[in-house]
């Protein structure tokens, strides 16, 4: 794979996410402005954090006059799953120069992670350089549009009508991302445990139940895989 084709393959893998990044960015711009943030504050948050769910959490808590440390703690808790993404990316891109790793870490959002890790796991022969280029290919159609559409939402105040049911585009996209990975019993078992525990612990605030669900699901997947290996 040449660097050029790796970039374009990544770009194509990132392209479908445009469907959700645009409306979601638009919505954040509108909601942040309506909540009383100035344009430069809205844009600074979107550019520094690039994590929709935690930005909405921060907005809501700020509007509810929660203490400052509660706002920050809760919004960061929503992002804790990204530590798992980071650990899972480390074996693939950990060898890159630190400045490249820092830039990649900044752009490590759900969509760029999911698309890249799937490619890396399917193609273990990819070199470090090609993996990096592929990652930035995925980033290119996703992250810039997040900033642009937050800006459009903040300035225009217009959002997509509710009848388009775009609220559901986010879950659908994640299902579409995970479905192809459910190709073996260990993967299916892990996904099952993740769903059941996440639902059972959904009463825990700020998605912290998800961290427990993910940890149990990882152990389940690994143990089922070991059991299968012993049997064969």
């Amino acid at each position: 794979m040449t660097s050029k084709s790796a970039f374009w393959q990544g770009f194509q893998a990132g392209l479908p996410f445009v469907l959700i990044v645009c409306p979601f960015g638009l919505l954040f711009g509108v909601v942040a402005t309506e909540a009383g943030l100035e344009l430069r504050e809205t844009m600074a948050m979107t550019a520094l954090v690039i994590a929709g769910a935690s930005q909405f959490t921060a907005l809501q808590l700020m509007a509810e006059q929660a203490p400052t440390f509660v706002v920050i703690g809760a919004a960061l808790a929503v992002n804790m799953r990204m530590a798992m993404y980071s650990a899972s990316m480390a074996p693939h891109i950990g060898g890159a120069p630190v400045w490249q790793r820092a830039i990649a870490a900044y752009f490590l959002v759900d969509q760029t992670y999911a698309a890249s890790i799937q490619k890396y796991q399917d193609h273990p022969d990819m070199t470090l350089r090609i993996k990096m280029i592929y990652f930035f290919g995925v980033v290119t159609p996703i992250c810039p549009l997040w900033y642009v559409f937050t800006y459009i939402g903040a300035v225009s105040g217009s959002t997509i009508p509710e009848s388009f049911a775009l609220d559901f585009a986010v879950p659908i996209t994640f299902i579409a991302l995970v479905a192809p990975a459910l190709r073996s019993l260990p993967h299916i078992a892990a996904a099952f445990v993740s769903v059941v525990v996440a639902l059972a612990l959904s009463w825990i605030p700020f998605s912290l139940g998800l961290i427990v669900a993910a940890a149990l699901a990882m152990v389940t997947g690994a143990e089922v895989e070991k059991w299968k290996e012993r049997r064969s």
């Binding site: 999911a114 890790i117 986010v170 993740s194 998800l210 993910a214 990882m218 690994a222």
Partner: peptide, 25 residues
Amino acid sequence: MRLLRFVPVAVMPGLVAPLIVWPQA
């Protein structure tokens, strides 16, 4: 390494399950 290979299928289903079963809309 074995655990980390399961991160995508361990995080994403749990992330979306509540959004599907109890939709905000």
